[in-house]
Simulated scan of single mutants.
Amino acid sequence: MFPKNTWYVGATPNEIDGKPLGRKICGESIVFFRGPDNTVAAVEDFCPHRGAPLSLGKVDNGKLVCGYHGLEMGCDGKTVAMPCQRVGGFPAVRTYPVVERYGFIWVWPGDAKEADPAKIHHLAWADDPAWSYCGGLYHVKCDYRLMIDNLMDLTHETYLHPTSIGQKEIDETPPKTRLDGNCAITERYMEGIMPPPFWQAGLRGNHLADDVPVDRWQICRFYPPSHVLIDVGVAHAGHGGFHADPKIKASSTVIDFITPETESSTWYFWGMARNFNAQDQALSEQIRSSLSKVFSEDLQMLEMQQQNLERNEGRKLLSLNIDGGGVQARRIIDQMLAAEKAAA
């Protein structure tokens, strides 16, 4: 259903600020916390004493303290102490490879021996002060692959987001899909059109006229296991579109880290990285608020879609040319699953 020998975004740093965080990732119940040197640890969310969730406890001097009977757990999954008890022989609980990088906490839910931090997807914008990022987290009750389908086919914007990013020209411009190694890419370029409301605001945010024709682009890139990064933006028409001088365009990368929780639920870490007026916090909040509304419209549709598919299990769905990116992404996922199965 979902590959496990790979890196997923498990949390954001603020979620474990002074407290443990319990989260199910790919069916694995994990608790994240900070150890004595402030590095992130991830262990099985299970107290070896009576099976209580360790995430219901607290963090004390870098040790995870069970909220039931006070058992103290170390970052290595071994029991450290328990009031008035001899617990040195307690079996260790499972630990998970975890890395804090690019403003996210990444976890490897599969075979720990295979976990190589070098395999974490490089996010150049995260280390560049000319860029800023704003985003959030949604819990979505749907198969993570439905979210990938949604993000690799932006035709739905015309209908699901008509007051923000949707416009008829999206329908009128067929996308093109291609593969670059194990990256599936779907791209659409629209020339000489009027910007929709969201991009009118983006142009104003870069001190540009918002009532003139623009060239608009959408370049969706799927990176396995479930990351979709989308280059989006508009430039005043006739100046090169995606390749136009930054002074006459508003461009961003939509960040979508899609982490399976179960077979029918997903943690969706969303946001936008931009390289114009990066220090303008008011603009960042405006973008975050607008994106939150857009993505909430997606969630309602995806959750109802999941319910409909469950009621009609086994019913064949149709694929059109607009679905090419999602189809390629699913093939890549299936190849990862087959490789894991063969290795096992």
Score class of each variant (00 low, 15 high):
residue 252 S to F: 00
residue 315 R to A: 08
residue 242 F to Y: 13
residue 332 I to V: 07
residue 121 H to K: 11
residue 73 M to N: 03
residue 72 E to W: 12
residue 294 V to T: 14
residue 162 P to F: 03
residue 276 F to G: 07
residue 139 H to C: 08
residue 16 I to Y: 08
residue 197 P to V: 06
residue 316 K to N: 08
residue 295 F to E: 00
residue 61 N to Q: 14
residue 331 R to G: 10
residue 313 E to P: 00
residue 117 P to Q: 11
residue 114 E to S: 11
residue 143 D to C: 06
residue 275 N to P: 00
residue 304 M to I: 02
residue 24 K to R: 14
residue 283 L to D: 04
residue 327 V to W: 03
residue 334 D to S: 09
residue 299 L to V: 15
residue 295 F to P: 00
residue 207 H to R: 13
residue 140 V to F: 02
residue 87 V to F: 04
residue 84 C to G: 05
residue 61 N to P: 00
residue 247 K to C: 07
residue 262 T to V: 09
residue 101 R to F: 01
residue 7 W to F: 10
residue 147 M to P: 00
residue 119 K to S: 12
residue 181 G to Y: 07
residue 320 L to H: 13
residue 337 L to F: 06
residue 300 Q to M: 12
residue 78 K to Q: 14
residue 76 D to L: 05
residue 288 R to N: 12
residue 228 V to L: 04
residue 97 P to N: 09
residue 196 P to C: 11
residue 38 N to R: 15
residue 192 G to P: 04
residue 11 A to S: 15
residue 214 V to T: 06
residue 284 S to G: 12
residue 107 V to S: 07
residue 97 P to Q: 12
residue 324 G to V: 03
residue 279 Q to N: 13
residue 199 W to F: 14
residue 257 F to V: 03
residue 10 G to R: 05
residue 164 S to G: 04
residue 288 R to A: 12
residue 208 L to C: 06
residue 138 Y to S: 05
residue 206 N to S: 07
residue 46 F to L: 15
residue 271 G to P: 07
residue 248 I to W: 01
residue 5 N to A: 08
residue 118 A to L: 10
residue 68 Y to F: 15
residue 338 A to N: 08
residue 265 S to K: 10
residue 39 T to G: 08
residue 138 Y to N: 09
residue 252 S to V: 14
residue 32 F to C: 15
residue 86 R to W: 10
residue 128 D to Y: 02
residue 338 A to V: 05
residue 261 E to T: 04
residue 237 A to D: 05
residue 264 S to Y: 11
residue 123 L to N: 02
residue 70 G to V: 10
residue 222 F to H: 09
residue 207 H to P: 01
residue 226 S to Q: 04
residue 157 E to R: 03
residue 291 L to A: 04
residue 187 E to C: 07
residue 169 E to R: 11
residue 308 N to F: 11
residue 147 M to D: 00
residue 84 C to A: 15
residue 56 L to W: 14
residue 156 H to G: 04
residue 127 D to V: 06
residue 220 C to E: 13
residue 62 G to W: 01
residue 265 S to D: 10
residue 152 M to C: 09
residue 326 G to D: 06
residue 247 K to G: 03
residue 50 R to Q: 13
residue 245 D to V: 05
residue 71 L to V: 04
residue 82 M to T: 12
residue 63 K to P: 00
residue 317 L to F: 13
residue 60 D to N: 13
residue 280 D to L: 04
residue 42 A to L: 07
residue 341 K to R: 14
residue 90 F to N: 10
residue 263 E to K: 06
residue 281 Q to W: 05
residue 164 S to W: 05
residue 325 G to S: 13
residue 309 L to Y: 15
residue 323 D to M: 01
residue 69 H to L: 09
residue 254 V to Y: 06
residue 36 P to F: 01
residue 242 F to W: 10
residue 266 T to L: 02
residue 102 Y to S: 11
residue 154 L to N: 01
residue 63 K to I: 00
residue 222 F to K: 01
residue 179 L to P: 01
residue 339 A to W: 02
residue 292 S to Q: 14
residue 306 Q to C: 03
residue 1 M to I: 07
residue 77 G to F: 08
residue 338 A to R: 09
residue 272 M to T: 12
residue 11 A to E: 09
residue 49 H to K: 05
residue 285 E to L: 06
residue 115 A to P: 00
